[in-house]
Structure formats: C-alpha cells, structure tokens
Design a protein around this nucleic acid. Sequence first.
DNA 1: TTCTTATCGGGAATGGTTGTCAATCCCGAT
DNA 2: ATCGGGATTGACAACCATTCCCGATAAGAA
Lengths: 136, 136
Amino acid sequence: MAPDPTPPAARRSTRQRAAVLTVLDSEEAFRSAQEIHLELVRRGDAVGLSTVYRSLASMSASAEVDTLLRDDGETLYRRCRGVTHHHHLVCRGCGATVEVDGPTVERWAERVAADHGYDEVTHTLEVFGRCSACRG
Amino acid sequence: MAPDPTPPAARRSTRQRAAVLTVLDSEEAFRSAQEIHLELVRRGDAVGLSTVYRSLASMSASAEVDTLLRDDGETLYRRCRGVTHHHHLVCRGCGATVEVDGPTVERWAERVAADHGYDEVTHTLEVFGRCSACRG
DNA sequence: TTCTTATCGGGAATGGTTGTCAATCCCGAT
DNA sequence: ATCGGGATTGACAACCATTCCCGATAAGAA
C-alpha cells in the first residue's frame, strides 16, 4: 500500500479554539453556542460566532464535549469529566448537571432492539428534574 | 362560588384538524410538520402550514400524538397506539417505529434523581437502529 | 338565521445554525 | 529568520423550521 499522499490534516492550535475550551472548562452546566459566544465577548476574548459553532462541532465529533438537545431544538454543549459513555441528570432551573451511569439501561436498549430485529443500536437518555438548590 | 363566567372553550371540530388526523392515522413512522403539510397538499386536502403546526401542538398537548426531536432539532410527530407512557424504537432508514415499554428504566430514573436530591423528574429515552427490512 | 368567537391562512418575522469567501494565521520546510 | 500554502477565521448573507400577526372565515349556540 502506497504511503498516504495527504498527511493527516494537522489540527492547528489557535487562540479561538483555546478560548472556547476555557469557557467550557469554567462552566458546570450545559450551555448553548450563543451563550458561550456571549461569554467570550464579555471576557474580552471575542471569537466569531461561526468559529464558536465550528469549534463546538469538531469537539463534539471528537467526543471532547457532550451535546444535548433542549425541548425547543436548541443544542447545548458541556465539557464532560467522565470519558466513558454516560448520561445526564440535568436541573431544569439552573442547568446543574450530574453524570450518571446506567449499565442496566444500555443492556435493556440492546435487548429490546435485538428482539425486534434492529441492529446498529444507539440511544438517547436524559433525565430532567429540579435540584435541591432550586427548590428553596 | 359563582358559576364560571367563561364556558370551557369548546373545541370545535374542523375539516383541517380532521385532515391532519387522517394523515397521521395513515402513517406508521414519525413525520415532520412539513412532511404532513406536503402530504395534505398532495391529497388535494390542503391545510395552511400554520394550522398544521397549531393542530399538532394542541394534539401533542392533549397527548393525542407523540413527539420526537431529531438530531438536527426538527420535531417529528406520530399518532401512537398505546395510551400509557412508553418509548420508541425507531429505524434510522425508514422511520418504522415500535412502541416499547421500559418499567425498569422508569424506576432507575426516579432513583438516580432522588439519590442526587432532584425532584419533579421527567426523562427522555429513544432507541435508534436499523430494521431488518432496511438491512437488506 | 344571527351572533359570537374559535379557527384559519398566508405572508412576514424570528432565531438558531450553516454557507461563503477573502483575509489571516499556524507551522513545517527552506 | 522567513517563506509558502493550506487550515482557520470572521463578517455577513442565506437557510429553514417554527411562530407571530391579523383580517377573513366558519362552527355551534340561541
């Protein structure tokens, strides 16, 4: 096999990408691209909105950030601590998020799909509630 | 207590709402509002797009139809057979949908939320795969 | 039939997200 | 150091599902 003529698209490190990561790291809750962009501007470390979207998309593709679709269809992003597959318990009030594991659910999904002749199974599972802080 | 001065907003039965329901009843898979509107036009039983959205929204509110958010944020609708709470096993290829029950998952979600001090718990759970027909 | 008002329709407005493309910047090669 | 070219950026326009607006229409009660 001949050597690949196009070297593996080097991922350049830029101020913009770093800035987006910094905001994500300082944020506990899921945030929208628009919110992240606004925060960047507020910090005086502005990044173009297009670039924010592009950065988040590529980070999501490489599993560096998790995404979540809100009821109204807006996409939310969050830098997750755990590296393995997990789900989220999200507070409707403040967005505080807990990463939770659900091995039982994974197996359940697999079995249900197999029982009906489906393969290439994936699933989405998110739990929403109100945290103790927001209850006061 | 005085009698309610405003009688309970009678739900009128219109051609448009019936037309939307007819399309939903003839459809096995989840469909978008735009697709339903297009189908209505194709059948020569046109209904305004606004009205399609309004109908679907009210039917969704009264639990007559189930909704599902696609990855790109578009909302899909489907008239479900089961009346009780259930989840969906959806084929990525053709949209064929199976209603599945997950009592274990319900309890798991409740317990996880309670363990972290969350209340007013809800959850979303959808399983995606490829059905046997689409595998050929 | 007449009246009240829920409902309709269609075109404009909204708002998140993606596309465009010239200017700019990273980085390995010179 | 600096060169060159391809990746990356950013301002703006384009996109598109969904909602808003409001005058016209029609369902249902009297």
